[in-house]
Each structure stands twice: as C-alpha cells, then as structure tokens.
Write a protein that binds this DNA or RNA. Structure first.
Lengths: 244, 244
DNA sequence: TCAAAAGTGTTCTACTTACACCCATGG
DNA sequence: CCATGGGTGTAAGTAGAACACTTTTGA
C-alpha cells in the first residue's frame, strides 16, 4: 500500500474530490470507507506529485476510482485553516488500529509527514454514474454512492466540503451546461429536468423547462424513445456535436 | 531582509494578491517593483506560516503594504501547473544581480527552496485607495498603483492572475455589493456608478442605475454634497449600518 | 435667467411564469 | 375510446432598458 512517497509529493497539500453522480432522481456523492478498522468515511482524496499539475492530480484520483478518462472537474475552494490537520482523525485511527502506531524510523517519518497542518484544494466532479466502474484504491475499503441529502458523517472537514461543492455546482450548473455531464449521451427532456430538480431541490414546470433548454440551442433532437408505456413517446436528445 | 524561514513556512506554496483600487474613474492594481536590480514587477505576494490560515496570510501581506486592517479579501483561483516555478525569473534575477548567486550553505538551501515548483493561491482585494498608506515590505523597491488597462509585464504568471482576478471581480461585484469597498464611507450616486463603469468597462444609464442601487435597499441617503458647482447638489449615501 | 447636473416618473420591451390545449401511445 | 404523459402555443406578470420631464445650484 503506497500512501507515502514524501520526496515525490508536495508536502502539506492534498486534493479532495466531491464526485457527483445522478441516479433515480437523486443527486449522489461518491464516498470511500477507508481501509482501516473503524468506520472512517471520507471523500476520495490524494496528494500532488511534483511532476503533475493539480488538475492532473485530481484527474488521477478520479480515474483510479471510477475508471473514467474524461471527467468534468473543477476546483472550487481552498481549505486552509491554520489548525487544519489530521490529528483528531489520527487519534481515532490509532484507537481503532493500535498496530498502526509507528514503531520504526520509517513509521515515524510517515507520522511526521501526516502530523503537519494540511492545505486542501477542493474539486468537484460530475460523472455519468452508469459509466463508472468503481475501483478501490489501496486506501479504500469500499466505495459507495450516497444520496447527497443523506450523507453520513465524514472525517475531517469533508462534510463542509461537500456543502461548498454543492453550492458551487448550483452556481455553475446552468451557466456552464454541466447537467449533461451527469447523464448518458442520449437522454430525454424529462431526465435532464430531473437532474435540475435534484440539483436545485425544487420542481420546474415541464413546458417552460423544455423551452428554456431548447432555446439554449445546444441540444439536438434524435429519435423517439419507445418504452412500451401507453403514452406519447418522448424524444431523445443529445448535446450538439459542435458544442464541446 | 527576511524572506526565507523555511521551517516556519509551508513549502512550495505562495499567496499572490491582486489588490484593486479605484481613482479618477479608473480601476487600479497595486504592483510592486522588486527590490533587485532589473525591472521586476510583481503582484504583492508572500508565503504561508505554519501557524496562520491562508486568509490570515493574505491579510498579513496586504496589511504590511497598505496599512489597512479591514480589507475585503477573496480567494479566487489556485495556480498549480506542474512546471510552475521561479526558474525563469531566477535566471533573469541572477543575470542582473550576480552577487545574489548562492555562495554558501545557507544560500544554497535558500536556492533549493525557491527552485521547487510552487502552487499559488490567488486572492483579490478591494481597498479604498485614499485610506491606503503605502508601505514597502523588504521585498519591495517601490509600490505603485497602475491602471488595470495599462498593466506592465509582470513576472511569472502574474498577468494571467490579474485577468482571472478581474473576471472574478466582475462576477461578484454586483451580487456581493463589493463596489462600496472601493469607495470612502460616504459617496455620491455618480461615484458608485463610475466604479461600476470602471469595473464593467461600459456606461450605465444614470437614472436606471440610481433606481437599481436604491432598490437594493442597502443605501442610506445622507446630506447633500455642495461642491460650489453651478448645478444641483447630489446626495451623499452610505451603506446602511445594518448592512455589514 | 441660464447651463449643467441631479432627481423622478412613465413607457416599452424582453423574458420568465403560468395556464391551456392538442397529440401520440398502448391497453 | 380512454388514461397517461409529451409537445407546443399563448396570455399574464415582472424586471430592466429607454425616454422624458422637473428640480436644484451658482454664475
């Protein structure tokens, strides 16, 4: 389990990722249960190698866990309080995992590294949950999607981070056409509306929403979607190829 | 000149500040000429001490140079490209200042510190230019206000930073009532309008602007401002005390 | 009494919201 | 032919832009 390569990493700096997905009318967030005894739930996170940009670092963290290559990713805040360190987490960790207490030179060095105050760059990501192939990194005991509205207690300030990420998402969803990142390539108007309703936690009027979307001029209407239900079949849409 | 206290500082991390002021219908930015031979112009910047938050660090950098205690300050972007380092700057620096080349243990240690790749957290600040008492730090040869539209070449990616700071300012000015931070406590409607015109680089209609401002409900009308000009005297306004 | 600049009211327009109707689908 | 859900058109309401007019000030 490689979690410590101090020379290759920027010290005291971490990347924390709030990964949003969408399923069954719910906004979801990917949460990792850490690979230790005790219920330590956390955002997928990692450190920055000397030879990668912070964006590349965030991409690496995400690609490792989701298998996705193309991911919408956006930095949204730096968390830099002066007492922001792992000490509380590590005290709990050692209480549940006494065998992890450092007992040699190497362990102490690692402890020193983790004992320092950390600055964290918060990223949020939007993924099509159906394309994700969850893949635990060495740090993860399990990876699981949680409803954004029913997030458990996370370590550190990760609950605060999800709140701030959510606010950033709300601010940017509409203007930057982010909603489509949460859906498959082909989707119905109802589906994209439900994404909006999940993100903004309020209903939209069907007809006005459709008009607004079509007026954006970025959607291409495809064939109808016949589901076998006894009602009119909706159209599929996709982002116009010219709209990257 | 203390510019290097590696143990007390977070390594590979800096804070760069784009400080906006307003004077004579112009948006201004505070630029430092570095205290070396050669024309090195830069944003006021500094590093983060272990025992201060990143916000406190930015405040310290600003307070040192402007004398102001209360400053509107906002992080807006993290610059973290993988090749983001001082090497190009230092090559030029040594060309103009060969005596700075390290010639002892201490100098080499410092060189090592500065040779690494740096992550920079960009802050922008808004100040009342009349309240500012410019005060050079040890790093500054001089401090000067430049028109935002006529910024000289700055070291590093500092020109890019001012552009990004400017965009962030435009996005936030209106919603967060930031314009008033650029003005004295008492101001006329024309003055705040001219701030807006400077920031958005376009004219506003006098009457509509006044209506919009008053409809915000945050302004309190004070006495008239008699200037001696042969025209109707405008009112002074201030932010309502209840609007912090 | 006049020019300049400030204050205020009114219309016009564009966009959002709300309501209404019609159409396709499979039972 | 009916219930259900999808597509579209139109009226009402609201916010901002544009225009017009009045008031104050000192020369």
């Amino acid at each position: 389990m490689r979690i410590y390569e101090a020379d290759e990493l920027i010290s005291q700096l971490s990347i924390d990722c709030t990964i949003f997905g969408y399923q069954e009318k719910r906004l979801k967030v990917l949460i990792s249960q850490l690979n230790f005894k005790g219920d330590f739930l956390a955002l997928p996170a990692g450190f920055v190698y000397q030879n990668e940009s912070i964006d590349q670092s965030a991409h690496r963290i995400l690609t490792e866990r989701t298998g996705l290559k193309e991911i919408y990713l956006q930095q949204f805040w730096v968390f830099g309080e002066k007492d922001r360190n792992y000490s509380k987490f590590m005290a709990q960790l050692f209480a549940f995992n006494p065998e992890l207490k450092p007992n040699d030179e190497m362990g102490n060095e690692r402890l020193t590294w983790f004992s320092k105050r950390f600055i964290s760059i918060g990223y949020y990501a939007l993924v099509d949950i159906n394309k994700v192939q969850l893949n635990k990194s060495g740090l993860d005991h399990s990876l699981e999607w949680y409803d954004f509205n029913e997030l458990p207690d996370l370590i550190f300030d990760h609950n605060e981070q999800t709140s701030k990420a959510y606010r950033a998402l709300q601010l940017n969803l509409d203007e930057n056409l982010l909603g489509f990142n949460l859906l498959p390539d082909k989707f119905t108007m109802k589906e994209i509306q439900q994404v909006y309703e999940a993100v903004y936690d309020r209903p939209f009027r069907r007809n006005n929403f459709q008009k607004k979307m079509l007026d954006l001029g970025v959607l291409e209407r495809l064939e109808k979607k016949y589901t076998g239900a006894n009602n009119k079949a909706p159209y599929f849409y996709r982002l116009k190829p010219s709209t990257p």
